[in-house]
């Protein structure tokens, strides 16, 4: 919980800086996020490689392991379809397209903007950014309430990069490879799903 609050503070300080502070050029280039992410992935990789229990999830799971990303896709589509019933101006199909973004906001919002216009594209962008931020902030609670797979499900496609460190810390290193696997499958699935649902 303390970790989550610190992370929230870092994020809020970042937003406020972006809004009001005249930042030096190196801080505002979008490349910076990418390089910090690369550094993070590298160190997380070292942690995973050195952990004996890391590969135990994959060892005997074989083909069944695809059930995890499949369940995450099914749940996301069903959940966003149900949620759209609360919203008058978003159709079930559009809601499912947003849900099929699975946290991969850059790609899904571009696709949805192209196929359905900027309003829905922006909702997709916000919704999928929220999914990532929610996972980063709520990971400790999700593990406590719903077990080690919950942040992997919540993270969706981001489980292979941005949210992987927080999943590894909270679910345990034995879930890291499962998170990575699920994230990779979902990342590949996003463009296929969005196109399929909207066409």
């Amino acid at each position: 919980m303390k970790g989550s609050l610190t992370i929230l503070c870092c994020f809020i300080v970042g937003v406020v800086s972006g809004l009001f502070v005249d930042l030096p050029a190196f801080a505002t280039k979008s490349d910076l996020t990418l390089w910090v992410l690369y550094a993070l992935i590298f160190f997380v990789g070292i942690g995973i490689g050195g952990d004996a229990t890391t590969f135990s999830v994959l060892k005997k799971s074989n083909i069944r392991i695809f059930l995890i990303p499949a369940a995450i896709i099914g749940g996301s589509l069903a959940g966003s379809a149900i949620a759209s019933l609360l919203l008058h101006d978003i159709s079930i199909r559009d809601a499912m397209a947003i849900g099929s973004g699975l946290g991969y906001y850059s790609l899904s919002s571009i696709y949805i903007t192209e196929m359905r216009g900027e309003v829905l594209g922006t909702i997709a962008l916000l919704s999928n950014i929220m999914r990532e931020i929610f996972t980063l902030l709520a990971a400790p609670l999700l593990v406590a309430w719903f077990g080690g797979t919950a942040p992997i499900a919540s993270a969706g496609a981001t489980a292979m990069d941005t949210t992987l460190p927080i999943i590894t810390i909270n679910s345990g290193k034995e879930f890291a490879i499962l998170a990575l696997f699920s994230g990779v499958v979902l990342t590949i699935a996003v463009p296929i799903l969005v196109t399929f649902i909207l066409s």
Partner: peptide, 19 residues
């Protein structure tokens, strides 16, 4: 709107994955 959709998608994913 985005938040409602996010909560629906996340809750659905967590439930199915947990099952």
């Amino acid at each position: 709107q985005a938040m409602v959709l996010t909560l629906g998608a996340v809750a659905g994913s967590i439930t199915c994955c947990w099952l």
